[in-house]
C-alpha cells in the first residue's frame, strides 16, 4: 500500500464528480454560489464542512469566552491597581510578571502547565474531553489568555495613569465624589476605550489562533479543524473556516464600535 493508489478510471470519475474537469472560473463560481446558500462543501472524510463547524465553533466559543473573561477580570483589575499605584512595588512586580508572560510563547506555557497541573500534581485532567465543558476549559482558557492578559494589564495601566491627571477626574474629585465612584464611573470608563479596542480584535485572534492551545489540551475546536484541514490539504475545510472567522472578526469590530458609545458619552451614533 503506498500513497493514494488511485487508478486512472477512478481518478477520472472523481474529477468529474467534484467538477475538477471544468475550467477554474466555473469551479470558483460554483463554490461561491454554494457558499452563499450555506454549503461549504465536503471535507475529505466525507463530512460536510458545515457539520465540522457545528461541532467546532461551540467549543472554541466556550474557550474564547473563558479566555476573554480572564482578560477582563484579571487584566483590567491588575491594570487599575498598577495604574493607580504607579512606581510602587506592586506596579514594578506586575510589570515584571507581564514581561515574563509576554516573552514566553503560549505552547511553552501550555505544555508546562499541563505537565505540572495534569501529570505531576493531578489537579486537572491533561486532556479535555470531546464535550469540552466550561470547567474543563478554565486552565486552557487561562493559558490562551495569558499573553493578551499581559497586554490588557499594560494598556489599562498606561491609560489609567494618563487619565488620572485629566480635568474631569479632578472635577469629580473636587465635587467630593467618593473615591470608588471616581475610579469606576469616570476614570475607568474613559480609560477603557483602547482596552476594549484591543479585546475586540482579540476575540477574532483567539478564535482562529488557538491552534497551539487546542492541540496541547486536546480541544476539538476551530484551531484543530484548521490544522487538520491544512495537514490533509482539505481546501474546503480551510477556506470555509477562514470565511467564518473573517465574519467573526467583522462582528467583533462592530461590537467594539458600538461599545465606544457606551463608554464615552462624547461619541454618538445617529
Amino acid at each position: 500500500m503506498r500513497g493514494p493508489g488511485l487508478r486512472p478510471g477512478h481518478r477520472a470519475r472523481l474529477k468529474q464528480e467534484f467538477g475538477l474537469d471544468k475550467p477554474v472560473w466555473q469551479q470558483y463560481l460554483t463554490y461561491m454560489g454554494n457558499v452563499f446558500t450555506g454549503d461549504f462543501g465536503t471535507a475529505f472524510n466525507g463530512q460536510p464542512v458545515t457539520e465540522l463547524m457545528a461541532n467546532a465553533f461551540p467549543v472554541t466559543i466556550r474557550l474564547t469566552v473563558v479566555a476573554i473573561l480572564f482578560e477582563i477580570v484579571i487584566g483590567i483589575s491588575l491594570g487599575v491597581v498598577t495604574g493607580l499605584k504607579r512606581g510602587r512595588p506592586v506596579d514594578t512586580t506586575v510589570l515584571l510578571l507581564t514581561l515574563v508572560v509576554l516573552s514566553v510563547p503560549t505552547f511553552v506555557t501550555g505544555l508546562l502547565i499541563q505537565l505540572l497541573l495534569g501529570v505531576k500534581w493531578g489537579w486537572i485532567k491533561p486532556a479535555v474531553s470531546p464535550e469540552a465543558t466550561f470547567d474543563e476549559l478554565i486552565v486552557p482558557g487561562l493559558v490562551l489568555a495569558s499573553v493578551s492578559l499581559a497586554y490588557v494589564t499594560r494598556l489599562t495601566r498606561t491609560s489609567i495613569a494618563e487619565n488620572k491627571r485629566a480635568d474631569y477626574v479632578r472635577t469629580a474629585v473636587a465635587k467630593g465624589l467618593p473615591r470608588r465612584r471616581v475610579i469606576s464611573r469616570h476614570l475607568l470608563r474613559n480609560s477603557l476605550i483602547p482596552v476594549v479596542t484591543f479585546i475586540g480584535a482579540d476575540v477574532g485572534a483567539l478564535m482562529g489562533g488557538a491552534i497551539a492551545t487546542e492541540r496541547i489540551f486536546n480541544i476539538h475546536g476551530v484551531g484543530y479543524q484548521l490544522y487538520q484541514g491544512i495537514v490533509r490539504q482539505s481546501t474546503q475545510t480551510v477556506v470555509g473556516f477562514v470565511t467564518v472567522l473573517v465574519l467573526v472578526f467583522l462582528l467583533a469590530n462592530l461590537i467594539v464600535d458600538l461599545l465606544y458609545a457606551v463608554l464615552d458619552p462624547r461619541i454618538r451614533y445617529a
Partner: peptide, 17 residues
C-alpha cells in the same frame, strides 16, 4: 478517543486517564 496530537494522548496516558 480522537486526540488532537499524539503528544497529548501520551500525556493523558502518563496521567492515568
Amino acid at each position: 478517543k480522537v486526540y488532537t496530537d499524539n503528544n497529548t494522548a501520551y500525556t493523558d496516558l502518563t496521567a492515568g486517564n
